[in-house]
Simulated assay, not measured.
Amino acid sequence: MSRADDPFETYLLRVLCALMADQSVSRTAIRMNQSQPAISAALKRLREIFGDPLLVRDKNTMVPTPRALAAAAQARAALALIDGLVSSGESFDPATTEQAFTIAMPDYLAPPFLAHVVRAFRTEAPRARLTAMPLGPQFDYELALQDGAVDIVIGNWPSPPEHLHISTLLEDEVVCILAREHPWAAEGALTVERYLQAAHVVPMPYSIDQRGVVESGLNTMRVGRDRRVECPYFSLAPSLLPGTDLIMTTSRHFAQYHAERLDVAIVPSPIPFPAMRFYQLWHSSQHRAAAHVWLRGVLTAASRTLAPPAARLH
C-alpha cells in the first residue's frame, strides 16, 4: 500500500516495522520506495514519539533497542488488523497491486522453485514486491506469521505446528549424493553399515525446535551419523562433495539439480527414511484474503517444476 493510498496514515508504523526488519535506513528506503532523507525524517519523528533512540549504532551495524522491538511487534499486529479492515470485501488484482509479500524459507528447495515464483511475480504482478528471507535458529516464524511480518513459511520438518494452515508443495524421496569417483558411488555399494561409518556433510539446522526427516529417522533407529563437516547453507553442501569421501543426504529433486552441475552421483539411501514433505504454512488471519490465496497458488504452481516428470502428470 502506497502512502498516498493509506486512509489511516499508518506510514510511520510501516517505517518502524521496516526499520526493525532491515536495521538500515538505506535498505528501508529501498524496500518502501522512499528516499533516504524521507526515512531518516520518519525515524526522527518516531524517536520523538517514543522517547527512545529505537536504533543505536554498534560497531558497523544498527541495533534495535528493547523498546523498538516491543513497539514493532505491536505495530505489526495493528497493521495486520488495519490491512484486513481495508482489504475486506475488496477484489484483488495482481496486475495492479503494489502489495509487498514476504516468504520465509531455507534454501533446501532447488533454485528453479524460487525462479518460477519470481517469473510469476514479474508476469502477473509486476508492481508487487517480493521478499524471500531465510529461516534460522533464532527466527520465531510462528510469531512472524501471527504478527504479519511474514506471509508464508516454507518448511519440511516432520511435525509442523497444528494451529497453522498447511498445504503440501512437494513430496520427495530421500537419497544420498557423493563424489562421482567415490568407491561407494557404485550401485549397491552404500550399505547401512557404511552409511553410519561414513563422514557426512550436514547443513546447519534452521529451527531449534524441529528435527528434519533424516535426524528424526536416525533418532528413531537410535543411531547417529558422523557430522564431519557442517556448513551454513543447503545449497553450498553439494559443492563440498567432489574430491572428498563425504556423503550428503537430501531430497531427490535437490540432488538431481546439483548432479546436473557438479561431478557428483546420486545413490539410493540404504536407510528407508520417510519421504520428505515440503509445505507452506500460514496464519488463519490470512486464510481467506484474496491476495494471500493468489500467493499460495503461485507457490503451489512453482512446486510443480520440482516434481519428477511422472508426478507432474497427476
Rank of each mutant, 00 (worst) to 15 (best):
L135W: 01
P137H: 05
F139A: 07
F139S: 02
D140G: 11
D140S: 09
E142T: 11
L145K: 02
L145A: 01
Q146K: 11
G148L: 02
D151E: 03
V153Q: 03
I154E: 07
W157K: 14
P158H: 07
P160Y: 00
L164N: 11
H165T: 05
S167E: 15
T168A: 13
L169G: 05
E171M: 10
E171L: 06
D172A: 09
D172N: 08
E173H: 09
I177H: 07
A179R: 03
A179C: 08
E181V: 04
H182N: 14
P183M: 02
W184Y: 13
W184I: 04
E187R: 14
G188A: 08
T191W: 00
Y195F: 12
A198E: 03
A199M: 12
V201A: 13
V202K: 10
P203M: 12
M204C: 08
M204N: 07
Y206D: 13
Q210E: 10
R211M: 12
V213W: 00
E215L: 10
S216R: 10
S216M: 07
T220A: 13
M221L: 15
V223H: 15
V223P: 03
R225Y: 00
R227W: 02
R228Q: 09
V229Q: 13
V229S: 09
E230R: 15
P232M: 12
P232H: 00
F234S: 15
P238S: 08
S239I: 03
L240Q: 10
L241N: 07
L241R: 09
L241T: 02
G243A: 05
G243C: 06
T244S: 15
L246M: 03
L246P: 10
M248S: 09
M248I: 02
T249Q: 04
T250R: 09
T250Q: 10
S251I: 08
R252G: 01
F254A: 12
F254T: 08
A255E: 03
Y257N: 07
Y257E: 05
Y257A: 07
A259P: 04
R261S: 02
R261G: 02
V264C: 08
V264F: 01
A265Q: 11
I266E: 09
V267T: 05
V267S: 09
P268R: 01
